[in-house]
């Protein structure tokens, strides 16, 4: 490629990066400013840094510790059960190969495009006394992520040879021993993908807690940031600090598991 053309492409690349980077930079830099300065919503560096004040202020006034705890519990428990239930189901569906497993696979594929029906879900939760409970929301997260993530696992099981199962069976392993001691460790890469995808979808979710945890003591981070903005819409420095706090855990996880998220999403979506 000619030199000038390469330089031109590098410039284009940089400009595209700016479209992504500017909103993120804007949030970060303004979360460090004093309230008066942040209200300009500018891109300049703060003249007076107010990092500690902003973040401690948000921690208290947006009730972050409680929300952080709620979100963590919901996310960790949901993701844990999503990994176990989806991998086990996929194992059955891919290995058993009878009429039932074929039917179930069809139902799961239909579930990939089906939207959730929020009102009838609310009704069900209401009848089961699960509205405003962690248990209820965790069950909804498992159900809501089940189709796609089971599908991702099914795709991966094709790459684990059956001969492995057969060899272990000849060695006298028990059914659950075969899964937990021999198969499950082999799923590590796909489980890492499922972990980050499920973590993101639960951690960032707004709609489910908005409908089902609508009481201040059970608010998740997504809800606090939304309601905090409603009450403090002119305190941009605090709103931005709140946004950073909400985003940080996912960003950190992403930095560690970046490779797996791309692999998982492409494996699940490209094959379909």
């Amino acid at each position: 490629m000619q030199g000038w053309r390469k330089i031109l492409l590098e410039v284009v690349s940089l400009l595209i990066s700016c479209v992504i980077a500017i909103p993120i930079y804007l949030v970060i830099v303004n979360s460090f400013k004093t309230g008066a300065e942040a209200s300009d919503l500018g891109l300049s560096l703060p003249t007076k840094w107010s990092i500690w004040n902003n973040y401690t202020d948000v921690f208290v006034s947006a009730k972050i510790p409680q929300a952080l705890w709620n979100t963590t519990i919901l996310t960790v428990v949901s993701v844990f059960f999503i990994i176990i239930f989806c991998s086990l189901s996929a194992y059955f569906i891919q290995r058993r190969e009878n009429r039932v497993s074929k039917l179930i696979q069809t139902i799961i594929i239909a579930g990939l495009i089906l939207p959730s029906s929020i009102i009838t879900t609310y009704m069900l939760m209401f009848d089961l006394n699960l509205v405003r409970t962690y248990l209820g929301v965790i069950l909804l997260y498992i159900a809501g992520n089940y189709a796609f993530l089971t599908y991702v696992y099914i795709g991966f099981f094709h790459s684990i040879p059956r001969e492995l199962d057969e060899a272990a069976i000849i060695d006298g392993v028990r059914p659950y021993g075969l899964f937990w001691r021999i198969i499950f460790p082999l799923l590590k890469p796909v489980s890492a993908s499922v972990l980050i995808i499920a973590f993101m979808s639960v951690w960032n979710d707004f709609t489910t807690p908005f409908y089902f945890l609508n009481t201040a003591s059970r608010f998740t981070l997504s809800l606090t940031v939304y309601f905090f903005f409603g009450q403090h819409s002119s305190d941009w420095n605090l709103v931005f600090a709140d946004i950073i706090i909400v985003s940080l855990p996912v960003v950190i996880l992403y930095l560690f598991l970046q490779r797996y998220i791309v692999e998982g999403l492409t494996a699940g979506a490209v094959k379909s």
């Binding site: 909103p23 993120i24 804007l26 949030v27 993101m200 951690w203 960032n204 707004f206 981070l221 997504s222 940031v225 939304y226 903005f229 709103v239 931005f240 946004i243 909400v246 985003s247 996912v250 960003v251 992403y254 998220i261």
Partner: peptide, 11 residues
């Protein structure tokens, strides 16, 4: 990977 609420408020 970002929360849609966080993105919306930034915008």
């Amino acid at each position: 990977i970002l929360s849609p609420i966080a993105v919306a408020l930034a915008f």
